[in-house]
Deep mutational scan, measured.
Amino acid sequence: AGSTTLRAVGKLQVRLATKTEPKKLEKYLQKLSALPMTADILAETGIRKTVKRLRKHQHVGDFARDLAARWKKLVLVD
């Protein structure tokens, strides 16, 4: 499952970095939220930084902030 999640995170990371349409960004964040994330995947992909960049986004900022905070707890636990 780890390598599958890693690939999925990579694809979503590229999309988050290149797309600007709020509905698409929200969809990608929801998909990321549903993935079985680990501290290793967060470290290897840097996805948390990508998501943190969206914290001030008018439409998806709250979602991005919550997701980044949830992942921060995951990193602190591991």
Score class of each variant (00 low, 15 high):
1 A>N: 08
1 A>P: 12
1 A>I: 14
1 A>G: 10
1 A>Y: 15
1 A>M: 08
2 G>C: 11
2 G>T: 12
3 S>F: 03
4 T>P: 11
4 T>I: 11
4 T>Q: 11
5 T>G: 04
5 T>R: 04
5 T>E: 11
5 T>V: 10
5 T>S: 05
5 T>K: 05
6 L>P: 04
6 L>T: 07
6 L>M: 09
6 L>N: 11
6 L>E: 13
6 L>G: 06
6 L>I: 10
7 R>W: 11
7 R>G: 06
7 R>T: 14
7 R>I: 14
7 R>L: 14
7 R>D: 15
7 R>E: 15
8 A>T: 11
8 A>G: 03
8 A>C: 06
8 A>L: 14
8 A>M: 11
8 A>D: 15
8 A>Y: 12
8 A>H: 06
9 V>R: 04
9 V>Q: 03
9 V>Y: 03
9 V>H: 00
10 G>E: 14
10 G>Y: 15
10 G>D: 13
10 G>R: 14
11 K>V: 12
11 K>Y: 10
11 K>S: 14
11 K>C: 12
11 K>A: 14
12 L>H: 00
12 L>E: 04
12 L>T: 02
12 L>K: 01
13 Q>Y: 05
13 Q>R: 07
13 Q>A: 10
13 Q>T: 05
13 Q>E: 05
13 Q>K: 09
14 V>Y: 08
14 V>T: 11
14 V>N: 10
14 V>G: 06
14 V>A: 12
14 V>P: 09
14 V>C: 06
15 R>L: 15
15 R>H: 15
15 R>A: 15
15 R>K: 15
15 R>P: 04
16 L>V: 04
16 L>D: 05
16 L>T: 01
17 A>V: 10
17 A>S: 13
17 A>W: 08
17 A>T: 14
17 A>L: 09
17 A>G: 12
18 T>L: 10
19 K>T: 15
19 K>C: 15
19 K>L: 15
19 K>D: 15
19 K>I: 15
19 K>F: 14
20 T>W: 06
20 T>R: 06
21 E>H: 12
21 E>F: 06
21 E>D: 13
21 E>M: 04
21 E>A: 09
21 E>L: 05
22 P>F: 10
22 P>N: 07
22 P>M: 04
22 P>H: 10
22 P>Y: 10
23 K>L: 11
23 K>Y: 11
23 K>E: 15
23 K>C: 13
23 K>N: 13
23 K>I: 08
23 K>G: 14
23 K>A: 13
23 K>V: 10
23 K>R: 09
24 K>H: 10
24 K>D: 15
24 K>E: 15
25 L>D: 01
25 L>M: 09
26 E>I: 05
26 E>D: 06
26 E>R: 06
26 E>K: 07
26 E>H: 06
27 K>T: 10
27 K>Q: 14
27 K>L: 12
28 Y>S: 07
29 L>M: 06
29 L>G: 01
29 L>D: 02
29 L>T: 00
29 L>A: 00
29 L>K: 05
29 L>N: 01
29 L>Y: 01
30 Q>R: 06
30 Q>F: 09
31 K>Y: 13
31 K>C: 12
31 K>W: 09
32 L>S: 01
32 L>P: 02
32 L>I: 01
32 L>C: 03
32 L>G: 01
32 L>M: 03
33 S>C: 06
33 S>V: 04
33 S>Q: 08
33 S>N: 10
34 A>T: 11
34 A>I: 10
34 A>Q: 12
34 A>N: 12
34 A>G: 08
34 A>Y: 00
34 A>P: 01
35 L>Q: 03
35 L>W: 02
35 L>C: 03
35 L>K: 00
35 L>M: 09
36 P>A: 08
36 P>M: 05
36 P>D: 11
36 P>G: 02
36 P>W: 06
36 P>I: 09
36 P>Y: 11
37 M>C: 02
37 M>G: 02
37 M>T: 00
37 M>K: 03
37 M>Q: 01
38 T>A: 02
38 T>K: 03
38 T>W: 03
38 T>C: 01
39 A>V: 11
39 A>L: 10
39 A>N: 09
39 A>Q: 06
39 A>E: 06
39 A>S: 08
40 D>V: 15
40 D>T: 11
40 D>N: 08
40 D>K: 13
40 D>L: 15
40 D>F: 15
40 D>R: 12
40 D>W: 15
41 I>C: 06
41 I>V: 07
41 I>P: 01
41 I>Q: 05
41 I>T: 04
41 I>D: 04
41 I>E: 03
41 I>Y: 00
42 L>D: 05
43 A>M: 12
43 A>N: 11
43 A>S: 08
44 E>P: 02
44 E>T: 07
44 E>M: 09
44 E>N: 02
44 E>I: 08
45 T>W: 04
45 T>H: 01
45 T>R: 00
45 T>S: 06
45 T>N: 00
45 T>P: 03
46 G>L: 05
46 G>W: 04
46 G>C: 04
47 I>Q: 05
47 I>H: 02
47 I>R: 01
47 I>N: 00
47 I>M: 00
47 I>L: 06
48 R>S: 12
48 R>M: 15
48 R>I: 15
48 R>P: 02
49 K>S: 14
49 K>H: 14
49 K>T: 14
49 K>V: 12
49 K>C: 13
49 K>N: 15
50 T>K: 00
50 T>Y: 05
50 T>W: 12
50 T>N: 04
50 T>L: 12
50 T>M: 11
50 T>R: 02
50 T>D: 09
51 V>Q: 02
51 V>R: 00
52 K>C: 14
52 K>F: 05
52 K>A: 13
52 K>P: 03
52 K>V: 09
52 K>N: 14
52 K>W: 14
52 K>H: 10
53 R>N: 14
53 R>T: 12
53 R>I: 05
53 R>M: 15
53 R>E: 15
53 R>A: 15
54 L>S: 01
55 R>F: 15
55 R>C: 15
55 R>I: 15
56 K>F: 12
56 K>R: 11
56 K>I: 11
56 K>L: 13
56 K>E: 15
56 K>Y: 14
57 H>T: 05
57 H>E: 05
58 Q>Y: 12
58 Q>K: 11
58 Q>G: 09
58 Q>V: 14
58 Q>W: 14
59 H>G: 09
59 H>E: 11
59 H>A: 11
59 H>N: 08
59 H>L: 11
60 V>K: 04
60 V>I: 07
60 V>Y: 04
60 V>P: 02
61 G>M: 00
61 G>C: 01
61 G>I: 01
61 G>S: 07
61 G>F: 13
61 G>R: 02
61 G>K: 06
61 G>E: 03
62 D>N: 07
62 D>K: 08
62 D>I: 00
62 D>Y: 02
62 D>L: 02
62 D>A: 06
62 D>R: 05
63 F>D: 05
63 F>Q: 10
64 A>V: 02
64 A>P: 00
64 A>E: 02
64 A>T: 03
64 A>M: 04
64 A>G: 02
65 R>C: 09
65 R>L: 04
65 R>Q: 09
65 R>H: 10
66 D>I: 08
66 D>L: 05
66 D>Y: 04
67 L>S: 01
67 L>K: 02
67 L>Q: 04
67 L>E: 02
67 L>G: 03
67 L>I: 06
67 L>M: 10
68 A>W: 11
68 A>D: 10
68 A>T: 09
69 A>G: 06
69 A>E: 13
69 A>L: 09
69 A>H: 04
69 A>I: 06
70 R>Q: 09
70 R>Y: 03
70 R>S: 10
71 W>L: 08
71 W>N: 03
71 W>T: 01
72 K>E: 11
72 K>N: 03
72 K>Y: 00
72 K>G: 08
73 K>P: 08
73 K>A: 13
73 K>L: 05
73 K>D: 12
73 K>F: 05
73 K>T: 09
73 K>W: 05
74 L>D: 04
74 L>E: 08
74 L>R: 02
75 V>K: 05
75 V>L: 13
75 V>T: 10
75 V>E: 14
76 L>V: 13
76 L>E: 13
76 L>K: 08
77 V>Y: 10
77 V>F: 07
78 D>E: 10
78 D>L: 07
78 D>T: 07
78 D>K: 10
78 D>I: 05
